[in-house]
Structures are given as structure tokens and as C-alpha cells.
């Protein structure tokens, strides 16, 4: 140790920290490995491992990272013999896409208004938006229900889409992106005679993209995973998103459940891999105070 000197010790320390954090991080991602191996495991293996958990409640006895007899029978069943799976998959795609499109259409101009115009009442309204963004779903559940039933939207997809479109969280994240645009740029555009609408389109939509992308990535991961809202406002099972269907698969069909879960995870994993930088940016933006 003494021979290493100051520089060497620093290097050793950094290698050690990196090693420990990588091992821990890999452990955190272990559930995904379980899903992958579980989805290609035969019934016998699955029963042997899962019986102690689900019947005797003694905890799980073991797991294999490489199944004894790998099989694609669960995927085959999913793709060929489970039409309801596709209906629910399309439901969640439809819900997520419409919600995100609506949030952009409504939230981008709203965030622009907060970021650019310093008028009276702005601070108050912004505070209202922040408080609304912080309220958990259970607190707004009854008010959403009352307005949705008055508009007779209950048990339609709009009951899930519309309240989410007007959620104030994306406004806040998009605002974080607009805040980074230098004000002098906007002033210069005004002096050059550009109208307010044009400034919004060229400067706002052009330079504030990071906020919008962050809102989209955070929103996708949240709404793809949506549970409470459809459960409260959709009675008809054919309208359900996938997230309500997966937990209902009995453990005896664990292989099928693993395969279906993996299919649900894929789009979210793809968005995560493509948008990790925006995700981090969005997390940082949601911590900015107005």
C-alpha cells in the first residue's frame, strides 16, 4: 500500500468503487434476468421452483439462470392463442400515445407562457400548477370521477386520457427546458419584428426540445405502467390496458406470465435505452423550483 503512492491509491479507490457499484447495479437488474429465463423454462422446472413460494409460502427454493430444457412454448401460446393479449396491448398503446400527444398539445404552450411572459398572476398560477402536480392520484380520484361522470365519459378511454392530458407535471418539465433559452434571444427576435407566435415556433420549439423530450420519456414510462386510473374508471375488461391483465394470470401459468411481462417490458426498455439522457434531464428538471 505504501509503495503505491497518492496517485496509485486514488486509482485503486476508483476501481474499487466502480466494481462495487457495478455489482450492486447488476443485482438490481436481476428481476429482468428472472423474467427472461422464466419465459423459456418448461412447466416442470417452473413448478419445482415456484411451488414453495405460492403454495407453502416458505420462500423460493432456487432458480436457474439456464433452464434445463429451454422452450419457446409460452411465446408460441402468446403469439398464436391469446387474442385478448393483443387487444389489451393495443389499448395501452392507444392510451399512451393519445395521452402524450395531448400533453404536448396542451402543455408546450402553457410552459411557454410561464417561461416567457412575466405578468401579474403568473407566480400564483405557477404555484397552483406545482401543487396540483404534487397531488397523488388518490387525492384527485374523487374529483376526477365526479367530473367524468358529469361528462358521461366513464368507462370510455377518454376517462383515462383527458385527466392525464391536463396533468400539470409535463408543463413543469417542459418549462425546465424553456428556462434554458436565453431571454436576450427572445428580445432580439422581438426587435427584429418577429411576432410572438413565430418566436414560439422557431425559438421555443427549436431550442426547448430537451424539456419536451424529457416530458415524453418520463410520461411514457409512467403511462405505459398506468394502473390506478384505468382500474378506477374502466369497468369493461376489453378496454383495459395490459397492466391490469398481467397480475391476473395465475401462477400455474407462470411461464406464460413471464413471456407476456417481457413483451410488456420491451417497449419501455427501448424507450429507456434511447432516452436515458432525457430521462436524467427530466429528473433534474422536476427538481427545479419556479
Amino acid at each position: 500500500m505504501r509503495k503505491l503512492g497518492k496517485k496509485g491509491r486514488g486509482l485503486l479507490y476508483r476501481v474499487l468503487v466502480r466494481f462495487v457499484f457495478t455489482i450492486l447495479g447488476v443485482l438490481l437488474c436481476l428481476p429482468v434476468c428472472f423474467m427472461i429465463t422464466g419465459s423459456v423454462m418448461g412447466e416442470d422446472d417452473l413448478f419445482a421452483y415456484l411451488l414453495p413460494v405460492f403454495e407453502d409460502r416458505t420462500g423460493f427454493a432456487g432458480w436457474k439462470l439456464i433452464p434445463t430444457y429451454p422452450t419457446f412454448v409460452h411465446y408460441k401460446r402468446l403469439l398464436l392463442y391469446a387474442p385478448e393479449f393483443f387487444v389489451l396491448f393495443w389499448n395501452v398503446v392507444k392510451l399512451t400515445v393519445l395521452i402524450l400527444a395531448g400533453q404536448m398539445a396542451v402543455g408546450v404552450p402553457a410552459a411557454w407562457a410561464f417561461a416567457v411572459y412575466r405578468v401579474r398572476g403568473r407566480r400564483f398560477l405557477f404555484a397552483v400548477y406545482v401543487v396540483l402536480m404534487l397531488l397523488p392520484f388518490q387525492v384527485t380520484m374523487l374529483s376526477s370521477y365526479l367530473s367524468l361522470s358529469r361528462l358521461s365519459l366513464l368507462n370510455t378511454h377518454w376517462a383515462v386520457i383527458l385527466p392525464a392530458v391536463f396533468h400539470t407535471f409535463p408543463v413543469f418539465v417542459i418549462y425546465g427546458g424553456f428556462r434554458d433559452i436565453p431571454r436576450s434571444l427572445i428580445e432580439a427576435a422581438r426587435i427584429d419584428g418577429a411576432g410572438e407566435g413565430r418566436i414560439f415556433v422557431t425559438l421555443g420549439l427549436g431550442l426547448g426540445r430537451s424539456g419536451m423530450m424529457s416530458a415524453l420519456v418520463l410520461g411514457f414510462l409512467d403511462y405505459w405502467n398506468m394502473l390506478e386510473q384505468p382500474y378506477a374508471f374502466l369497468e369493461d375488461r376489453s378496454l383495459w390496458p395490459l397492466s391490469l391483465y398481467l397480475p391476473e394470470i395465475a401462477w400455474q401459468e407462470a411461464g406464460f406470465a413471464f413471456a407476456a411481462s417481457l413483451v410488456m417490458l420491451l417497449p419501455a426498455g427501448f424507450v429507456f435505452a434511447m432516452g436515458q439522457d432525457y430521462l436524467e434531464q427530466g429528473i433534474v428538471y422536476s427538481g427545479i423550483k419556479g
Binding site: V32, L221, N225, I249, A257
Partner: peptide, 18 residues
């Protein structure tokens, strides 16, 4: 390293329920 720790955020709750 950050992506390893952030990834659980992307995993849908319904997909890991089992």
C-alpha cells in the same frame, strides 16, 4: 452505472409482479 440504477424505473410494475 447510472443506467443500471435507473433501469428499475423503466420496468412496468405489472411486468415484475410475478
Amino acid at each position: 452505472i447510472k443506467s443500471l440504477y435507473l433501469f428499475p424505473l423503466a420496468i412496468p410494475a405489472a411486468a415484475v409482479v410475478i
